[in-house]
Simulated scan of single mutants.
Amino acid sequence: MAGIEEVELLGSVGSPFVIKVQIALKLKGIEYKYVEEKLGNLSETLLNHNPVYRMVPVLVHNGKPISESRVILEYIDETWKLNPILHSDPYKRALDRFWSKFIDDKCVVPAAKTIFIPDENEQEKAREELFDALQFLENELKDKFFGGEEIGFVDIAALFIPLFQEVAEKQLFTSDKFPKLHKWSQDFYNHPVVKEIMPSKEQQYAYFKARAASLAAASK
């Protein structure tokens, strides 16, 4: 069924938000066309599909665009039932949404600051914020993955953790402080789907540099 549908993903290599969508599509076995967008010079197609946020990713399914990675992940899971990434139980599904939002709100920004902000005082403050958030995730992780024995919605949201660990010149956290998260990050990165999709460290770093330059230009 998926093979005869029109599925297109507008993205940029190295974008963690795009990687999340690619992992979900791959886990579901959905065939799609990938269209590369250049940060700072987005196509008219992208701008027409996502005029509000004007950024990747955008999933276009049978001509209908869906924006924002968390929204796209839920759409994918609701549209293609095979290999679900959200729990079927309403309470557990609500927890999936809660923790994925927690990661976006409490982990992503401080993690980025620890890598890309040169001010050491700001870095240290961001690192403390990140460690506080990671401790909550450390306590929440009960199985091999947040989704159980298989990758689920929260695992995909949490890819920022091993991704930033990979991009950073120094370790953001160690196995001594966060043993379960450290083991999880290794299992996640070594998952065959993730290994196939994850771009190189150089590509990831290039994306973040281009993203920062694009934001700086937009603020002038």
Rank of each mutant, 00 (worst) to 15 (best):
L134N: 01
L42V: 09
A126I: 04
K113T: 12
A126V: 04
D187V: 02
K201N: 14
L134I: 02
T79F: 05
V7N: 06
Q135K: 12
S67R: 10
G148D: 08
P192A: 06
Q135C: 08
A111M: 10
K144H: 03
D105Y: 06
Q186W: 06
L181W: 06
E44P: 05
P199H: 11
L159R: 00
E74W: 01
L73C: 08
E129W: 10
E36Y: 15
G11W: 01
I4Q: 15
S88F: 09
L181S: 04
K125R: 05
S200M: 15
D119A: 04
L172S: 04
E74K: 04
I23G: 02
E150R: 05
E196H: 11
M198Q: 10
G14H: 01
T79Y: 04
L82N: 14
D104A: 11
K144Q: 09
L10C: 02
G147Q: 03
L10I: 06
P16G: 12
A157D: 07
H49G: 05
M1H: 12
L25D: 12
V35F: 14
G63F: 13
K28I: 15
E149C: 00
E166G: 08
K81S: 12
L130N: 01
P51A: 11
K177S: 15
L59Q: 03
F146I: 02
V35K: 12
F164P: 01
Q22P: 03
I19T: 08
A210P: 06
Y205G: 10
V18L: 08
R211C: 13
V52P: 01
E202R: 13
V7F: 02
I117W: 09
L27I: 12
C107E: 13
N50W: 14
H61M: 13
S214I: 07
F131M: 07
I151L: 03
K92D: 15
E74T: 00
I103V: 05
Q204G: 12
L25G: 02
K177A: 13
P16E: 08
V167W: 02
E169D: 15
V7T: 12
E120P: 03
K38S: 14
V60T: 07
F208I: 04
L42T: 11
K180R: 12
R70W: 07
L86S: 08
A213G: 05
N190R: 09
R93P: 15
T45V: 00
E5G: 06
V154N: 09
A213N: 08
R54L: 10
K26H: 13
S175L: 09
Q186I: 10
S200D: 11
V56I: 14
G14Y: 00
N190Q: 10
D119Q: 09
P179Q: 07
I66D: 08
I4S: 14
P84A: 10
Q165Y: 04
R70M: 05
Y189D: 12
G40V: 05
K20P: 01
F145N: 03
K201D: 14
I161Y: 04
Q22E: 15
T45D: 14
W80G: 03
L42A: 09
A206D: 14
P192L: 06
N41E: 11
A133P: 00
W184L: 04
L86P: 01
G147C: 02
P162A: 11
